[in-house]
C-alpha cells in the first residue's frame, strides 16, 4: 500500500483499470498466480457486503475503501531486465478499496485500521516542520 501525492494522480491513471483485491481470513501457503476470476465469484449482499466460498467455507466480505490520501497497488517485477537493483522496474495495478473477508461472519478489519493509523503517524513524523512551530511545540511542553 502506498501513499500517493496529488500531483502524481495523472500519471497513475495511465496504469489502467482498478483491480479488485481480496483479503482472506486464512493463510494460503502459496505465492504466485491464482485463478481468482475463474473460481472466486462473490455475490453481492446489500450495499457493502458480499458472500463467497473458499475451499468450501463460507466467507462474508465487507468492502473497505482505503483511507483518505492512500492508494493501493499490486506490484509485480517487470519483465524488463534491470542493470542494478536501483533500476528495477515494477508493473503496478491500482486499487482504491479492498474486500475484507471473514469466515462465516464479517471480520473486524483491525489490521487495516492499524495500517491506516501508521500512515497518519508516518506523515506526522516526516512532515517538514517550520522553526516557529518547533519553538511553539517546545514551549508547550515546558
Amino acid at each position: 500500500m502506498g501513499a500517493g501525492a496529488e500531483g502524481e494522480a495523472g500519471a497513475l491513471e495511465a496504469l489502467g483499470a482498478e483491480v479488485r483485491v481480496h483479503h482472506l481470513p486464512c493463510r494460503v501457503k502459496h505465492t504466485g498466480p491464482a485463478r481468482v476470476s475463474t473460481y472466486f465469484h462473490p455475490a453481492e449482499r446489500g450495499d457493502t457486503e458480499s458472500e463467497c466460498t473458499f475451499r468450501g467455507r463460507k466467507l462474508v466480505g465487507v468492502r473497505l475503501p482505503l483511507p483518505d490520501g492512500a492508494r493501493g497497488f499490486v506490484l509485480r517485477p517487470s519483465a524488463e531486465p534491470a542493470e542494478s537493483p536501483a533500476e528495477r522496474r515494477w508493473d503496478a495495478a491500482p486499487f482504491s478499496a479492498l474486500t475484507w473477508w471473514g469466515a462465516d461472519f464479517p471480520a473486524a478489519p483491525g489490521a487495516l485500521h492499524a495500517a491506516a493509523a501508521w500512515l497518519e503517524t508516518a506523515a506526522a513524523v516526516h512532515d517538514d516542520v517550520a522553526p516557529e512551530q518547533q519553538h511553539a511545540g517546545l514551549c508547550a511542553q515546558a
Binding site: 502459496h30 473458499f54 475451499r55
Partner: peptide
C-alpha cells in the same frame, strides 16, 4: 489454490485428503 469446483463436497474426507495431496496448504 482453490481445490475443487463448488460441485464437490469439501467436507468429505475424500476431498480433504485430495486437497492435502494435490493443493497448497490453507490454515484457518
Amino acid at each position: 489454490v482453490f481445490g475443487l469446483p463448488r460441485f464437490a463436497r469439501f467436507s468429505w474426507s475424500t476431498t480433504q485428503q485430495l486437497l492435502k495431496e494435490r493443493a497448497v496448504a490453507v490454515a484457518w
